[in-house]
């Protein structure tokens, strides 16, 4: 079987040359390419950029309907393409339902923000930090007291010492100041950022431990603020985010809960725990359909999650015998 590539889609020669179908090869390819995109997100299904405005969504849907609605092929033999067209059109309608509604579109845009978009936000944050460090360094150069202590070697040595001793917070502090005085030193830069990362992780895990204790003691308010502090210190702390979401739901604060759950999914899209937390939050918010979807995703990632199974069961209805 020879296969050719078209818009990044692999076509099956057998389907492409199916007999008794009144469609030319270009149309067949367009339909098959659309079918191959069905598993992608709503934006991609409609061929849109992430976060495209409602007007564009509607226009794209109308254009797509003209190509993929089965009625456009009345009186023609379609073979297996009839089913394909219907599937494509249904999926596009589903995408339109969400994206043509302002509120649902905004929520969906947040949950589907691409990695590049996050990278851009992160980059902006780093840039801000770099500027503030520069400013501090400028001030430091003008301050004779600090200027004396600003010999880089001294600071770097002290920082490394603290790093060895496991005092990452102090190490990060010294190394960063040293680095700001000698920005061209790559060894200092990587050491400083490693120290910073470890300091954050340590801080996060301290907050996380405190939060766990607080939650066990039943002081949910404290637990929630500690979980959030942990997450602030280390945005990749999935367990803190998930547990925080759980506590926020218990406290009835759905906005915070959803924020935390979404943070968890972003931090670790491949961890069942994150999806479970999101599902739980959505369920509490009454969005059963989305909740089911999130829980099913969790179960897909980890089929042994009995709590998820139980929860899913509750979301389904019984049939009268």
């Amino acid at each position: 079987m020879t296969e050719e590539r078209h818009q990044g889609v692999v076509f099956s020669e057998a389907v492409l040359s199916e007999d008794g179908v009144d469609l030319d090869v270009d149309r067949r390819k367009a339909i098959l390419a659309a079918e191959a995109r069905l598993g992608q997100n709503h934006w991609e299904v409609l061929g849109l950029e992430w976060n495209a405005p409602v007007e564009q969504v509607k226009a794209a849907y109308l254009d797509a309907a003209k190509i993929y609605h089965p009625d456009r092929y009345g009186g023609r033999k379609l073979g297996s393409y009839r089913g394909r067209l219907e599937r494509v059109f249904r999926r596009m309608t589903e995408a339109r339902e969400t994206l043509a509604d302002e509120t649902r579109r905004a929520a969906y845009a947040r949950s589907t923000a691409p990695a590049t978009e996050f990278a851009r936000m992160e980059a902006r944050k780093l840039e801000d930090e770099r500027r503030s460090l520069e400013r501090r360094a400028r001030l430091a150069r003008q301050n004779p007291l600090v200027a004396r202590a600003s010999r880089v070697g001294e600071l770097a040595a002290r920082g490394k010492e603290a790093f060895q001793a496991g005092d990452f917070a102090r190490a990060a502090n010294d190394l960063q100041v040293a680095q700001s005085l000698d920005p061209g030193n790559p060894e200092l830069a990587s050491l400083a950022s490693e120290a910073k990362r470890r300091a954050a992780a340590k801080k996060a895990s301290e907050h996380y431990d405190k939060a766990l204790t607080a939650e066990t003691m039943g002081t949910l308010g404290l637990a929630l603020s500690e979980y959030r502090a942990a997450l602030d210190a280390d945005p990749r702390h999935v367990r803190a985010a998930a547990a925080g979401a759980r506590v926020a739901v218990a406290q009835g604060d759905h906005v915070v809960a959803r924020e935390l759950a979404q943070a968890a999914v972003r931090a670790a899209p491949a961890m069942a725990m994150a999806h479970e937390a999101l599902g739980m939050v959505l369920e509490a918010q009454g969005d059963k359909k989305e909740a089911r979807r999130a829980l099913e995703k969790a179960l897909e990632l980890d089929p042994r999650l009995d709590t998820v199974k139980e929860r899913l069961r509750k979301l389904r209805w019984g049939i009268l015998g």
């Binding site: 219907e86 059109f89 249904r90 309608t93 389904r316 209805w317 049939i319 009268l320 015998g321």
Partner: peptide, 22 residues
């Protein structure tokens, strides 16, 4: 909007139920 399709999951309500009427 048609054409459309939708799937839902349901469960049995009696122990050892062997048939459901839809």
């Amino acid at each position: 909007t048609v054409p459309t399709s939708e799937t839902h999951l349901f469960t049995t309500v009696q122990d050892n139920q062997t048939s459901v009427r839809i």
